[in-house]
Structure formats: structure tokens, C-alpha cells
Design a protein around this nucleic acid. Structure first.
Lengths: 179, 179, 179, 179
DNA sequence: GATGAATGAGTATTCATTCAT
DNA sequence: GATGAATGAATACTCATTCAT
């Protein structure tokens, strides 16, 4: 019954489904069954709501994907790849929201600093893994690894209807785990 | 002096810079110095204008990137990689337009069929190359190759401010040309 | 000071005077001294506003014309004819609005169901009167009675400049009350 | 292949179906397969086109309904009633166009003079009939007769879905021919 | 915290009309 | 007679935001 959480939940779903720019505050209100005023009371502006959602997603990424500190690098990469491909199949629209918000100039501007924060976070924890495996070229390899995952997500979610996710996963596992 | 071309040129620039949804027809008119009516006379709707622009970009891709039929597969990949990284540095906002239009649900819906057409085109010509090199797993490898390029573009254009493009290029060249 | 009522009042007057299709929302706003948004906040669309107005008119007809349950049929018809001809002289433009809205295909479509509801209402209460007088052919006679009144309204309001309303009224009284 | 006639034919059908205000010149052009310029070449304006159509309808009424000069008054009324009810069933949308154009303030203004001309014409030829039958009250009776027919048309075309046209016709025949 | 009436600038789109060819 | 590119004013409608309650 926490109305603030309810707003965030509904807004996330709607932004994901229809895009940020094409979801009106009115629609969020009707779906979440709250008044217009309340949204501005809690988030100050529509942009504020987006920022809150984006921040929370970063928090979730932290919790889910970057906490595998215990095992060695190979085990961690293995876990990471598995959770990545799992989420890809599970949270399609939600991930699409992240891509679209980041790639569109206007929305990107709104969350600029949050994007940088998240990107740094992801880069650093990836770099740690590759440093452990082989310090030579670890920076470029880390960027390459992140790019590969993002590219896979983009192609799977927005471009191809028959993207062979399983085969791609095998390819990646072979590449990073069976050298 | 062809006003239709002028509209397309201006609209492409504005859509790229500010995003499709955040560019108003009025703005296109003022910049292109034509009347509002003329846009609808030529393109029927704002969506129609986007479709025309997207189509033309596909045509350009055809002409520029997929015409290297003469040499062997390795030469072609080499040319392709070079032209890809060149364009990435040159046409930043323009490529960003393509990513954002494809990844946002609303705009994606408008050009759904054109995305599929372009994706098929790119996949087929990539697959031809990989088939020539090694028919085993050529399909998955093709998808992987395309995903890598798209991921690089996405990371370079929208996520990292200090993306090491040259090192990534070297990595790719090593991977695909010096096996 | 109730702005919603104010909008309805102004819109009714303007629609009557210039026709629904030729009255712009802007004009209604300026005249009623409210913002554009408020009309859509209250009525959802220009069509919604028309429907509200049409509905209210039906309510008014109910109250004014169909409440003569007490006397016998002849008394009721007498009252009804008197109030009909009175209103015809008093509310010219307002009645014209009703005729024009009903007879034009586009506006008619908007209020289709409300027209049927009103027509049924008027028919049933007319039929009750004619049934009381003489059940033979009461249905056809009721339709004829209604048609006569509507035809008189149409001719008086929109066709003839010198329509002899008083003589017509005498003719009707003679026909229906002095048989 | 006379393009002017083709325009008139198409415009009449479209105006009847969708109303004058809701039919755009563009639509007339596309349907009639002529250019925009040609309509303005022939009719000077959209209003001019409406006037031409209205005029021609008056001409048609003259030819069809008012030429029964030969028989006596009763025969003429009989013919007139028959042709009226026939047309009512045949040319529904076309007659609706006439009612809607006359009853809506804006369109009425455009053809004001033509409406008067037609109304006078119809009144005079009706009056001639009633004068022949009984000069007392012939004026009011003529207006009443015209009002009855118009009211029947209005109710049949725009108000009731189950208007009993045949019974109404019988009622009228009994009233005017079997006194 | 919570409501919803009210605003006003902004949006895509329509449309009668003109005019050079 | 005939075309269709071009105009610009007008239209219904949207929407983030404010504010009194």
C-alpha cells in the first residue's frame, strides 16, 4: 500500500513498455490509482521519477551481478554470464527501457551523471576480473566484454526476431571459460 | 533547391541531435524554411518522414558497406571493419539516431518492417563472409560479429566517455584477421 | 462561478449560433474565459462536450414536456402544443442546433445512442396519449404527430422566412382537439 | 469523361455521406481522380461547388415533382405523394444532404438565396393545388402539407430506425385524397 | 500525505486556396 | 483545361506542472 513504491512500479512498467517520452504522468496516475499531485509531491518532476527508477536499477545491478567476490575470476565470469542470459530472457521490456533511455539524447541528458556512475561501476568490477586473469590488455578486453554483452542485448531485444541466444551463449562460454 | 530533399536533410540532422520524439515538425519547418503543410504534402505524417529517412539510411548502408564482392572474405572483413570504425568517429549523432530509433518502443513500432529488412540484409551479407571462411557455426558467428559491432557502437556513442576505440579495433582485427 | 457549467452554457450558445463543426474549442475557451485544457479535463473531447449538451437537453425535454401526467389526453396535448409553439418562438437557435446536429451525418454519429434514447422517450409518451384517445392506429398517428411538429420546426427555423406559425398552430389545435 | 460532371457527381455523394464540412476538397479530388486546381478552376471555391450541387437538385425537383400540370389537383397530389415516398426510400443519403445543408447555420448561409428560391417554388406549386381544392385557408394548409412531408423525411432519415413509412403514407393518402 | 481543478504553451495534422507550369 | 507543389492559418488535443484545499 506504499503509494510511492506503487508509483515507481507502475512507472517502470509503463516507461519500459511505451518509452519514457510516450508515457504521460496522467497515465501513470490512472494506472497506479494515485492523484497527479502526489507524483510531483514525491518526485518533484517527471524527470525526477525517471532518475529514481534509473538509480534503483543500478542498485539492483550492484546487488545481483557484482557481488560474486568469493570465487576465482573464471567462476565469477561463469556466474555473471549465466545471470546475464537468464535476465535477458526474463526481463525483456525492462532491459529495453535501459537501452532506450540511454541511447536517446533527451532522456540521456536527464540521467547523464547516473549513466556515468553505473558505467564506471560496471567497468571497474569487470576490469578486476580481467586483471586477475591476465593484466595485459585488461582494459581493452574489459570494454570489449561489456560491449559484447550490450551488443547481444541490443540485437536480441530490438533487432532480430530469431536471435540464437543459446548458441551465442555457448560461443561466449567457449571464448571466456575454455581458453 | 529541391525542397523535399531539404526537408529530409534538416529532419535527419534534427532527429539525430535531439531524438525523433523531441523534434517538432515546426522546428523542422523553420530550419528547412518550408511551410508546415509541405511536409505533410510530401510525407503524409511525421512517421512517414521518419520511415523515409530510415529507408534512405538502409540504402546508404547497402551502397557503402555491402558492395565489397570482389576480394576474398578476409579482405572484405578488413575493409568492413575499417569503414565501420571510420564512420563511428565521423557520424556520431547520425548513428545514435539509428540506435535510439530502433531501441525505443514507439519509434521502433513505426519502422518495424524496415528494421527487419535492414537486419536481414546485414545478416545475409555477413553470413556469406563467414560461410566462406568456415561453414561450421557460421550463423552464430555472424550474429556474434554483428552484436560486437553494435555493442561497440552503443558503448562508444552512449555509455563511456573514454571508450578506447583504437584498442578495440586492434582487438577485433587480431581476432578476425590474424587467427 | 462553476467553470464546468459556464463551459456548457457558452458552448451551447456557440454551437447553436454557428453549428458544432464551425465552433472551435478555442472560441469556447475565450468566450467562457477558461483555459483550453479545462475543457478536455472535464469533457475529454469536443465530442464529449456535445454529448453532455445533448444529454442535458433531453433531460430538459423530459422535465418540461413530458410531465403532464395528471389531466386527460386532450388536456395534455393542448398543453404540449402550447409549450411547443412557445419554445419555437423563444429558443430559435437552440432548437436549430438540435435539428442540425441530428441531421448531419458526422455529428449524428457522435450522439447516435442519445438520439435513439430521446426518440424512444418522446415516442413512448406520445403513444400513451394517442392510445388513450383511440387505440386504433395509435402507433402511426403518434409518428405522424411527432413528424408534424418536427416538420413545422424545420420549416419555421430553416426554410421559410414568413412561415405563418399562428395559423399552423390553429390548424393543429383544430385537428387534434376539436374533432 | 466530362471531368466537371465527374466532380459534381463525386462531391454530391461525398457531401451526402459525410456532410459538407467534413468532406475535404482533397478527398473529392482523389475520389474523382482530378487535380485540386481543376476544382477551383471550375467552381471557384468549395462553396461554389456546394451552390452548384444545390442548384442542380432544385432543377431536379422542378423536373420530377412539379410538372404534373395536366390532371386535376387530387390526381396531382396522388402522384406527388407517390413520388415523394418512392424517393424517400431510394435516395436516403442524398435527401439527408439537403436537410443537413439547410439546417446547419454555416452551410445555410452559403446557399441562403438558393434555399429561398427553392422554398418559394415549392410553396407556389403546392398552393396552386390547395387553391384548386378549397381556397379557404389554402396558404396555411399548403405550409402544413410541406411541413408534414419534411417532418416525415426528417424522422425517417435521421431520427427513428423503425419509422413505419407505409402506414404514414396511408394516413396521408386518407387525409388528402379520401376526404 | 493526498487530491484534482486549472493552466498555457506545445503538438501533429488538416485544409481551402493560389499559382507557376 | 489541367496539374500538383506550396502556403499559412486554423484545429483538436496533450501534457507537465502548480496550487488551493
Amino acid at each position: 500500500m506504499d503509494k510511492k513504491e506503487q508509483i515507481i512500479e507502475v512507472a517502470t512498467a509503463l516507461f519500459a513498455e511505451k518509452g519514457f517520452e510516450n508515457t504521460s504522468i496522467s497515465e501513470v496516475c490512472e494506472t497506479a490509482k494515485v492523484s497527479k499531485g502526489l507524483i510531483f509531491h514525491h518526485f518533484k518532476s517527471k524527470n525526477g521519477l525517471l532518475r529514481e527508477i534509473f538509480s534503483r536499477t543500478t542498485d539492483m545491478i550492484k546487488k545481483n551481478n557484482l557481488n560474486h567476490n568469493d570465487g576465482n575470476a573464471y567462476d565469477t565470469i561463469s556466474l555473471l554470464l549465466n545471470s546475464f542470459f537468464d535476465q535477458l530472457k526474463r526481463d525483456k521490456t525492462f532491459l529495453q527501457l535501459n537501452v532506450s533511455v540511454i541511447s536517446q539524447p533527451t532522456t540521456r541528458e536527464i540521467i547523464k551523471d547516473l549513466v556515468k556512475e553505473r558505467a564506471d561501476l560496471i567497468f571497474r568490477s569487470t576490469k578486476k576480473l580481467f586483471d586477475e586473469i591476465d593484466p595485459i590488455n585488461a582494459t581493452a578486453k574489459s570494454y570489449m566484454f561489456i560491449s559484447e554483452l550490450d551488443g547481444i542485448a541490443l540485437n536480441y531485444l530490438s533487432i532480430f526476431n530469431d536471435y540464437p541466444l543459446e548458441e551465442i551463449k555457448s560461443l561466449l562460454i567457449k571464448k571466456y571459460l575454455h581458453q
